[in-house]
């Protein structure tokens, strides 16, 4: 019954996704892409949770994944709203040009 694909495989995959997402957040200048990268990070976490849920045969992990998706959706809605307002006011989507809070 034991599959050759173990939970570890999923964890490694999750870690890779997380890293790639972090790279996007830290390096890209385009706000839209940064938000997509955040989605990637959240998905990495979800994958992790589902993997453990499968591993432990407990459904709670999937419940958490659902809540994370809810939060991700809310974040996307508000974030993109902010983005539109920002673009209307500053005519740019590049984060290092948005520096009004600089000292």
């Amino acid at each position: 019954m034991s599959s050759p694909i173990t939970t570890e495989h999923y964890l490694v995959l999750s870690a890779m996704l997380l890293l790639i997402g972090t790279v996007g957040v830290l390096l890209r200048r385009n706000v839209v892409v940064i938000m997509m990268s955040i989605e990637l990070i959240l998905n990495a976490v979800n994958l992790n949770l589902v993997a453990f849920s499968h591993h432990l045969q407990q459904v709670n992990g999937q419940i958490f994944a659902i809540f994370i998706i809810v939060v991700a959706v809310a974040e996307a809605a508000v974030g993109l709203g902010i983005l539109i307002a920002l673009f209307r006011n500053k005519e740019t989507v590049l984060v290092d040009e948005i520096d009004l809070l600089k000292w």
């Binding site: 972090t22 957040v25 830290l26 390096l27 940064i34 984060v95 290092d96 948005i98 520096d99 009004l100 809070l101 600089k102 000292w103």
Partner: peptide
């Protein structure tokens, strides 16, 4: 302290990391 306040989003993210 105020040199930490760069105003750049990604600087904060880096510190966070």
């Amino acid at each position: 302290v105020r040199f930490l306040q760069t105003g750049f989003l990604q600087s904060y993210a880096l510190v966070f990391m």
